[in-house]
Nucleic acid binder design. Structure first.
Lengths: 218, 218
DNA sequence: TGTACATCAGTGAACGCGCGTTCACTGATGTAC
DNA sequence: TGTACATCAGTGAACGCGCGTTCACTGATGTAC
């Protein structure tokens, strides 16, 4: 788990064994929670949690922004992995969308700290910060768009502007997800159910609009 | 405009004339912008902008949280007013939804600082902070839900779960609106158009699902 | 195998800064007699 | 109308704090000869 090599653990007292970027990232993650967002973390706080002197932080990251972007990228990759797995598990009975939404909700309930980052930090922080979140979100939209196209081809249902539909679904799910985090456990399920319904609504909408569009061009 | 009574302006030098809550709110608004959110403002900063000593702030607000909540409430009321006006202007030709969306977009483009607050601060800040934003959003959902019901009755179109539909539209428009703020002028129109289409998609979806539901209960 | 040396991740101390908050104050305003 | 007094929004100075960042350092590790 820890990346501290055991063979090097004999160091002079008062001196920490070598610490890696990953250890600092782990420390930052430990500090995050429902009431702490990445943008409120201080360098000293993270260093303290990691068990290093504040200035040692600079050996691994230029500044907190760089750490934050690293966290955001990790969070995006992690969630894409999870959603990707869910996509694979989708069958003809269980739609891709349903499967992915379920996976997302499950992760949400698991209180995954990486997920918190993606959900919360989209609108605050430095420009680099916002851009990193936007980038991850656009990856999701891209992949979801492909799913929708495949899905429509498979079912023979229409599809109006897959990219736009994917964007609407992604953004809506992420905002709603963010509000779930603040809710007490017992209300989370309720909101999760709402999110699923909202996604269905959007998909029904894109199909209907596609049908109308097709009729008009007849 | 200013609430400083002119008749009382003769005060001893080095002493500010009486200042009101509104003056402090105005100072806070002045400091906000695309890269400054309410939650990053400091008490001293606001006091400086208002031209008072830091400790004078306490004569008007318990702390920054109280100011923030006041700002959020103002922002919500202001936008509801604007949307309410748009609702009145809606005709049979221009739908309520179109009219309201247009009004929202116009306000967005006008770079209204109160609107910034509502769009940005939903996911960060103290609990009181988040609760205040949630409350304002729920007001919108409520009113929009009523609109949707009236609209459906008027047009005879179906409507599946008006409250849920209103929530989806509100949340989606607000998140998308938040991303608009960071965009350069020339890309804002594009995104604004996307938002309108997304709303149409949701409305089409709720109508379709209502139709399906009605068919099933036949 | 031993020695000299470069590298580099760690260190403690210190810096100046802006912050929220407190204190005892002051003096203009409004009220009671 | 004048005087005494309470009120209260303003004040400057000071506090202790955590912050980001810098500095010159140290000593373990790996490499060259």
């Amino acid at each position: 788990m820890s990346s501290i090599p055991a063979k090097k653990s004999l160091v002079s007292p008062g001196r920490k064994p070598m610490i890696s970027r990953e250890d600092i990232i782990a420390a930052a993650l430990k500090l995050l929670g429902p009431s702490r967002s990445v943008s409120t973390l201080s360098l000293r706080e993270v260093a303290r949690e990691a068990g290093i002197a504040p200035n040692s932080f600079y050996r691994h990251f230029r500044d907190m922004d760089e750490l934050a972007v690293a966290l955001i990228d990790m969070a995006g990759e992690s969630l894409r992995q999870i959603i990707g797995d869910a996509r694979q598990r989708a069958t003809l009975e269980v739609s891709v969308v349903q499967s992915c939404t379920d996976a997302f909700m499950e992760q949400l309930r698991a209180d995954d700290r990486l997920l918190h980052i993606l959900l919360r930090e989209g609108t605050v922080g430095s420009d680099a910060f916002k851009r990193a979140v936007e980038r991850q979100l656009s990856f999701f939209e891209e992949e979801l768009g492909q799913d929708l196209i495949r899905l429509a081809a498979l079912k023979g249902s229409g599809l109006c502007q897959p990219a736009l539909t994917a964007k609407a679904i992604t953004r809506l799910v992420f905002t709603m997800g963010a509000t779930v985090l603040d809710l007490p456990r017992d209300k989370q399920d309720e909101l999760a159910a709402q999110i699923v319904k909202m996604v269905r609504m959007i998909i029904a909408g894109t199909q209907t609009l596609a049908a109308i569009g097709a009729k008009k061009t007849d």
